[in-house]
Structure formats: structure tokens, C-alpha cells
Design a protein around this nucleic acid. Structure first.
Lengths: 191, 191
DNA sequence: ACAAGCACTTAATGTAGGTTAAGAAATTAT
DNA sequence: ATAATTTCTTAACCTACATTAAGTGCTTGT
């Protein structure tokens, strides 16, 4: 069964016909590492589901500093939700970090699917709810924990990512500079 | 028309029967200022919709410091989404800041309503999507903007709240101490 | 195989924002 | 009205993290 269908089936049950209909509205692409599949300033036209590989979304502020919003590895969704919903130019870049296979679901098809398969409305509601909960926790963590504590949480939550992601991007995700992250890591290793 | 129904009608259209069904599953309560309607450590059983008044949700960390996650005034929803979804004890307090009229929708009724009125699935999907977008923006702002810039954004985004909310809680929302906030405000007034 | 660029480290110095403490102003309760 | 409590301000001092800079590995492309 297609991975994306399997992913959906963890939350709502689709008939074989519905599965086929769903898949017919998606498009699967392979990207080389370092490909930017969405640029800041562009309107986001798709939701992206990762079959294999690793992507990330990030912004770049005035001072040319990157800030990672999210990583997405196998089985995760990614995109620029603000831009996708509003259909206005967004602030996010979406970059392919390793050679990856990605399923694209266009906004129009996603909306058609909501009416053709109402269960998908539920699926995406739940997906978004979970995402919101995770985001709220991260926000509160940024307000109340030290960089060291945030890093520890990150390690527990995403153990596989630590192997794969360059550490300057983990630094960016938890909200410190690469230099400080390096120093902090050295400090932690001494313990 | 009931405010909560009006709120829903901005996004999906309900028939009079559906409106009545919806309202029959809710309960409206009046709370005095300073009432805590949800404590950290409890399981959140309801979504709260504010008819009038003002509420907030916040955590308290080890050092007895409060961190405001959100404010909710007239027409806004609030609760502890993590706890509501997982039905596990949460970390959030929900406090009534002014005498308020609040509509309670229990988790069970909310889920019944999803099947009885599928359009509500869409309503809450869209509500959650918007919430997620706002949260993502706030997270990125916390990573990339100074306290001063975050405060300016807050003022533009929630002009009415500035009059109503004690400034130490605005400080908490943007992520600084009340003392630093005070200093920053004095600095801004000089310009 | 080599050069060119990244990613990581280390260290000196700088700063936004935190802490502590004490008093003034504003609310709230009696 | 007055006391009690909470909120806000100010100021001296402190620290987690940023900045700058220079050097050391790694990758990656050719």
C-alpha cells in the first residue's frame, strides 16, 4: 500500500476506491539533496508528504540568519501552511536535505477531496490538531526552558534526526547560534 | 442569534435545526473574575468559547514563573488542546480575567457533533489551521525578533488587549520579565 | 587527487534581557 | 476611608547567549 495511504489509514479508514481516488489526485516526485522546492515570496501550492528522505522548512531574516521551523522525514507532512491557506506569498523556504521521494497534493485537489471523501476532513483536522499541540509545547519550551533543556528534549523527541541533520540546523531549530551550540555540546559531553 | 453560532456561521453554514442541535449540546456559564476554570494536572473536558469577558491560559514552571500561552476575549476559543485531545492531565491553567460568559462544549459532545453535523469537522479543521498558522508565526517571532519588536507586533495585532490586560501578563506573553518590560516601555515612550 | 567550500570548534569580548531589591502607584477588600 | 494586596517602576548588578574572528577538519565537485 502507498505510504501516504498507510499514513492516512492510521487515523481514518479508506475504502480501496477512496484510496485510489486519493492517489489519483497526488503526484510523486524525486528530488536531489539541496533542491529548494518552495521559496520565500512564492505562493505555496502544495502540501508535501515525505515518502523517503528528509526536508526542512525555514525562514531567512534581514540579517541573513536562517531559522528552522520544522524538519520532515519519512511519513511526515511539510509545507508553508500560512501561504497554502491564504494563497499569499509566504516567508518559508522548503528545502530537500537528502535525496527524497515526495508526494505532492495540490491545494485544489485537497479541497476537492474534502468534499469527495469527507473522512479526509477529519484526517486533516486531526493532523492539524496534533501539529498545533506540538507547536504550542515548543513555544512554551522556548519561553521557559534553557537552550540546554531544549536540546535534551529535542534529543529525546527526535533521536533519529540527530544523526542526519547538520548540527547548525539543530541549533537553529532550538533557537541558538551554531557557536553557542558547539560550546554547549562540549559542556554536556564533559558530564 | 447565539454568538457561538454566529462565529461558526462565518466559516460554515448551519441550518436552523443544526444550530439548535449544536446549542443543545453546549452549556453557558457565568464566571467571576479570577476564577480558575481549569487547573494544571487536571484533564481538560471542554472547549471554551468566550461570549463576553476575557480569559487566558498559562503554565507555571518550577520557579513559580507564569507563562501565558494565550488570551481569549469575545468570540475566541480557549482550552488545553493537549489535554483535551489526549485526555491526560495537562500543564495549562485557564483563568477568567474579567467577569465572563463562557460557552462550554464537552469533548464527548464535540465528537458526537462531528458525526451528526459533518460540517463542524470542517469548521474545527479551519479553526485549528488558523490557530496553527498564528502559533507558527509567534514561534518564529520568538526565535528571530527582539522583545521590542515582539511587543510592537503584539500592539498591532491585539490593540484592544493592551487596555485590558495587566502589563505583566503581556510581558509574559511576549516572553520577558515584568521588570524588563517596564524598562523597555519607558525606553519606547522616549522616542 | 585536489581545491573550494562548508561545518564545526575555540576563545575573547559584547549585550539583551534576567535577578534582586526597594519604593511608588494603583486596585481590591473590609 | 483605610488597610492589604497587587502592579508597576527604577536601579545596580548578573548571566545566558550573541558576535566576531581565526583555525581545523569535512564534504563535494571537478
Amino acid at each position: 500500500m502507498a505510504q501516504i495511504v498507510e499514513n492516512i489509514s492510521k487515523i481514518v479508514t479508506l475504502t480501496p476506491q477512496e484510496q485510489a481516488l486519493f492517489l489519483s489526485k497526488t503526484e510523486t516526485k524525486n528530488y536531489k539533496a539541496k533542491t529548494i522546492i518552495l521559496n520565500a515570496g512564492e505562493v505555496c501550492k502544495h502540501s508535501y508528504f515525505v515518502n523517503s528522505g528528509l526536508l526542512r522548512s525555514f525562514t531567512i531574516n534581514d540579517n541573513i540568519v536562517e531559522h528552522v521551523l520544522s524538519f520532515a522525514c519519512e511519513g511526515w507532512w511539510i509545507g508553508d501552511m500560512y501561504s497554502l491557506l491564504s494563497q499569499k506569498p509566504g516567508n518559508l523556504f522548503v528545502e530537500v536535505m537528502e535525496d527524497s521521494e515526495v508526494v505532492l497534493l495540490s491545494k485544489e485537489n485537497q479541497e476537492k477531496l474534502y468534499t469527495e471523501i469527507p473522512k479526509l476532513e477529519r484526517f486533516f483536522r486531526i493532523l492539524t490538531e496534533n501539529s498545533l499541540v506540538a507547536n504550542q509545547e515548543r513555544l512554551m519550551d522556548n519561553l521557559s526552558l534553557t537552550a540546554e533543556e531544549r536540546f535534551e528534549k529535542f534529543c529525546k523527541k527526535y533521536p533519529t534526526l540527530i544523526q542526519k541533520v547538520p548540527q547548525k540546523q539543530i541549533a537553529s531549530y532550538i533557537g541558538v547560534t551554531p557557536e553557542f551550540f558547539s560550546k554547549m555540546k562540549a559542556r554536556l559531553l564533559k558530564k
